[in-house]
Nucleic acid binder design. Sequence first.
DNA 1: CAGAAAAGTTAGTACGTACTAAAATACGGT
DNA 2: ACCGTATTTTAGTACGTACTAACTTTTCTG
Lengths: 248, 248
Amino acid sequence: MTAARAVTTTPKRRGAVSRGDGQPPSAPLELTLQAEDYLKAIYELEREGDAAGTNALADRLDIAAASVSGMLQRLARLGLVKTERYHGTRLTAAGRAVALQLIRRHRIIESYLVARLGFAWDDVHDEAERLEHAASPQLIEAMARVLGNPTADPHGAPIPTASGEIAERELASLAALDVGASARVAGVNGRDPRLLRYLGERGIRPGVKVRIESREPFDGPIVVTVGREKQAISPGAAAHVRVEPKAP
Amino acid sequence: MTAARAVTTTPKRRGAVSRGDGQPPSAPLELTLQAEDYLKAIYELEREGDAAGTNALADRLDIAAASVSGMLQRLARLGLVKTERYHGTRLTAAGRAVALQLIRRHRIIESYLVARLGFAWDDVHDEAERLEHAASPQLIEAMARVLGNPTADPHGAPIPTASGEIAERELASLAALDVGASARVAGVNGRDPRLLRYLGERGIRPGVKVRIESREPFDGPIVVTVGREKQAISPGAAAHVRVEPKAP
DNA sequence: CAGAAAAGTTAGTACGTACTAAAATACGGT
DNA sequence: ACCGTATTTTAGTACGTACTAACTTTTCTG
């Protein structure tokens, strides 16, 4: 068969996940599931430090750094991020709005699964991770309504409002507290259900009071009092526990 | 920069939507969202006639016929369909199993949205269409449990069991009934919410008894008695109403 | 401050999924 | 049996997203 030139004649929009939220006035802004994941990850990394580094992103998303570079350029083209060549990436206002909506979806879904469908708090992350890309705003708001518009998810993380405001508290990591300090557990970061279960079994859950008893050198265990029991946990695990420091 | 040969070194699996149902023993079988949509559409077309034609599929999925051809070859490679060149496509047993699981997901989600989240029966299709690809088996079974394992969705369509059995009833189209015949509405086919709402407003809903009063020639309206009122509807709309014929 | 290590980018490739245009096949009616 | 139309497939292209390899830039350390 001989050559046939394909004359590009405005094909229709493809690849993006339509969530059926018809916004006729202005921007359609349909993002792919992957793009959404990047934005959320950038948001989180920005919160944990400064601009999100390419390798850190690659690590978190389990994607090769080179691929991340490429995607960041695409997101920059869409006006969702601002990348400073060789110096990390930040969300623009538009990008942050998308990320916050995703986080709202995620946390409401987690809350709903635990409250209404009998899921364990340590077993909802992956489910929410998938559903957050598929759920329409109507579904999310219906879930929120049924739950009485919760303000925190089962891990203690605050839920952004529908208009994208989030009550970020000043939190420290359990691993960073001094010996003798007391704190209230605000939440537990982390995607790994085993870690969540492990901590949960030791009583480390949102709302619980803890006190640092001692810490061993050379990355040794941290001993904390939880309720009336003492628990020795690794600094690695403790790093995922977000706490609200208290006066002794 | 000079040429660099990319040496293919077994990259990791990509593109498919992992639903987190870890089946370590045999087949992973992770399908993309699109592949799943094709399988469902083929299932439906097979039920409405014989092998699914490429154009019919293209029509239903709103995709160019050429693209459908390509995808069918991929699905055939995966052993999910059997295509007889130029003569339509059928699901294999494996393909049918996937389609039935999707239909189960879809119908349970629809049921749940109506029963627990205040959605209107004519407004759940699109939401379910997206969620069915993201929901894990655990979520689906949790929803089913909460609802008491329903056997039909809000449109009256039967829900396949978790093991893939479906109670397909012998149904006729309202458009095909003779004048004077009575029937019970079993369900309404269709993705178009306007049609569903239109019919619903006229009392045509699953479970309702109808009687054909008259039909006009040249594709004219069909007059049916619904409850104690007479309604004149177009044959096009009537064709979407599935009924269980009854003795007069 | 130089050189090594770390971090990031570019180049080239692959695959899934879509498109248009054009060719091939099948089918119904004269 | 033939011809035109409908259906389907192939050819060629595009784009998003991923990969590895190789290169560049920045940062850290002796």
